[in-house]
Simulated assay, not measured.
Amino acid sequence: MIPEHILNRKGARSFKDLDTEVISYLNKGLIQTANLMEWLTVDQLVLLKKILDDLKKLDWYDSFYEAVSAQKKPSANANTKVIGMTFLQLTNDQSIIDYLSNHTSDVPRCWATYWAGLRESEIDKKLKVIAPYAADVHFGVREVAIFACKEAIIENLDMAIDILSEWTSSTDENVRRYAVETTRPIGVWTKKIDELKEYPEKGIPLLDPLKSDSSKYVRDSVGNWLNDASKTRPDWVKNICARWAKESTTKETQYILKKALRTINK
């Protein structure tokens, strides 16, 4: 039984504020991380050892340890990717990926996200398998779903946009947001998409359907997408915003326009 004060915590704002009790629960995989600070704190190898023991695959541990230790620039996200890749190299057992995908802890779900995304080479199949992770309840899994597909999206941009344009009509705000966030021309943590920096008009099939979205999560992404584009194609962004202002007078659209034009209006 997890104590209420653990389940209802807000998450530490700095490493010095982290609760040792919370860290213990995280490293045992008994709870999800509450924020990025906690996600960065999880000792993934400790958690992995516990999970491999549960799976009766403890003999795999050395392979994971070697892969993680061999990194020149280790980080939480790099460890997540390496562990996901190592699972892919060791097995294709669907029961194991299902176990990870449905784990209480978000961290194994992140491993599964990389495993699923990297297992497929064709963009249509890759996006199909990544969709459940793009819809995950946890922010970390949703972000890893972007990392796992970003390179393939860049390499197959037109086809990816065609597929993702259908996601904009999803009833799930996480899926709608993914369609936009994963194609941001610049973004924050991921590789830039030079083609969209130069030709942002290619993103219109993703942006137009969401210009007055009911979800702030989605609106933030649309506004940030346009703000990205404004750094290389300001005139185009001004034209889009002017058109949207005429087509939609909702407060939701006004919110997006303000966010989209914030660099231009500095």
Rank of each mutant, 00 (worst) to 15 (best):
K125L: 01
H103I: 08
Y114H: 01
V107Q: 06
Y99E: 04
F87V: 12
A134Y: 04
T104F: 10
T80R: 13
C110Q: 10
K81W: 02
A70R: 13
E122C: 06
S101T: 04
K125S: 13
H138T: 10
E120R: 14
I154V: 15
W115Y: 15
P132F: 03
A145Q: 10
A148V: 13
T113N: 11
I83D: 00
K81D: 01
S121Y: 13
D124Y: 14
K125A: 05
V137H: 12
A76W: 11
A131N: 09
F87N: 14
H103N: 14
Q94C: 08
L90K: 14
L90I: 05
V141R: 09
S75N: 11
K126Q: 12
A148D: 11
W111K: 00
F87D: 01
S101D: 00
G84E: 13
F87Y: 12
P108K: 01
I96T: 06
R119F: 04
V141N: 07
T91D: 09
E155P: 09
D93A: 07
G117I: 11
V137E: 06
D93R: 10
C110I: 12
S95N: 08
K150G: 01
V82A: 11
H138I: 00
K73I: 04
I153V: 15
A134E: 03
M85N: 14
A134Q: 02
W111S: 03
R142W: 09
L90D: 11
A116M: 02
G84L: 11
A131F: 07
T80L: 14
K150P: 04
A145L: 02
L88W: 09
Y114G: 00
V129K: 09
V82F: 15
T91K: 11
F87S: 06
Q89D: 15
Y114Q: 00
S101Q: 04
W111H: 02
L100S: 08
T80P: 06
H103Q: 15
E151C: 05
T80Q: 10
C149Y: 04
S95T: 12
L100D: 09
D136F: 09
I123A: 10
G84C: 07
I153E: 09
K72T: 11
Y99V: 05
M85F: 05
V107E: 14
E151M: 15
L88H: 08
D98C: 12
P108S: 00
A131T: 14
V82W: 13
A131V: 08
I123L: 08
T113C: 15
I146Y: 01
Q94M: 10
S101R: 07
A112L: 07
L118N: 13
N79E: 10
I96M: 10
Y114E: 00
G140V: 03
T86N: 13
K125N: 12
N79V: 03
C149D: 03
L127N: 06
A135H: 02
D98V: 05
C149M: 05
N102I: 07
A112Q: 02
N156E: 01
V82N: 07
F147E: 10
K126T: 11
Y133G: 06
N156G: 02
R119Q: 10
K81I: 02
T113S: 15
P74A: 00
